[in-house]
Amino acid sequence: MIRERETAWRLDWRRHLVFALLAAVFALSVAGLAFGLAAAVPVTPLPQEIAFALGLLVFALLGNRLLFGYGFLVSYLQAVHAGRTDPKQDQRAFMRSRAWPVHRAGELTRAGVALFWAERLDPDRYAFFGAFALLLLVTAVTALDPVANLLTGGFLEGAVWGAAVPVFFVFLLEALARWQIDELLAEQVIWADPSPAGERS
């Protein structure tokens, strides 16, 4: 049965085609939106808007590793939940989780691999949220002083709102990954080895 599922997943090229088409449509719409906006707004951007864009850009770059790391982790865990992982995918997840200096391939469960993977991303997450917290702190402190507020001119606030967008996505993906790992752990721990003292016995 597992074999059938794997072959079915591998041979389903229509699925890849649909995803490729969707990606093309998405890219086209984003490009069209950008060009449409560029054509519709002939005025020069305000300094506040530039501050917003800079905050968004800088934090998107800073959180790039996290966005892709948690994104791949979430997609792997989704595949695990759906029961459509193949050995190649598991192997890639094991490589990405950086568990191989400690464990051999096949030694860990998928939940264990996911835990290693999430833990590997923790320092980056700490630095990312730390940078955002520092930006927030500087903005709040300068907003307290009228003179300093006049000097910064509300540009720091724009940078904060721009930075809040990638921060939101990182937070969301990380929380989703943790939710999935907890779900997987509960599934494996409870269902694999039901404890006699537990409620389900």
Partner: peptide
């Protein structure tokens, strides 16, 4: 959170414009 961020950021941009 998305509502809050969209409200705040959009409000900031609209206010500055």
């Amino acid at each position: 959170l998305a509502l809050f961020i969209g409200w705040g950021g959009g409000g900031y941009l609209a206010w500055s414009r």
